[in-house]
Amino acid sequence: MPAKSKSQQMAAGAALSAKRGEQKASDLKGASKSMYESMDEKELEKMASSQRKGKPDHKSDS
Rank of each mutant, 00 (worst) to 15 (best):
P56V: 11
M39V: 02
E22V: 05
E43C: 13
Q8K: 13
A48I: 06
G54V: 05
A18S: 13
A12F: 00
G13D: 00
Q8N: 11
S32N: 13
L16K: 05
S7N: 08
K19F: 02
M10K: 15
A11S: 09
R20A: 11
P56Y: 10
M35N: 01
A3D: 01
G30Y: 02
Y36A: 12
E43K: 13
D27R: 10
Q51F: 09
L16A: 09
Q23W: 03
G13Y: 00
S32H: 04
S62C: 05
A15V: 01
S50R: 03
E43T: 02
E41N: 09
A15Y: 00
M47T: 01
S62H: 04
R20L: 08
A31N: 04
D40I: 03
R52C: 08
G30T: 05
R52I: 02
K59H: 08
K29N: 12
K42E: 12
D40T: 06
S5W: 03
A25C: 07
D27Y: 06
M39I: 01
M10P: 04
L44F: 00
S49T: 14
D40S: 13
D61N: 14
S62M: 04
K33A: 15
Q23I: 04
A15G: 01
S7D: 08
A31E: 05
E37P: 04
K24F: 01
S38A: 13
G30P: 04
D27A: 13
S32Y: 00
A31P: 01
A15Q: 02
E43P: 09
D40K: 02
S32A: 15
Q9G: 15
Q51K: 15
K53S: 03
S7L: 08
E37F: 12
K59N: 14
A48C: 08
K24C: 06
K55D: 02
S5N: 09
Q23S: 09
S5K: 09
S5G: 11
Q23T: 06
Y36C: 12
H58Y: 12
S34R: 14
P56H: 10
S50L: 08
E22I: 04
D57G: 14
M35K: 03
L44V: 00
Q8P: 02
K46Y: 06
M39P: 07
K4G: 04
R20D: 09
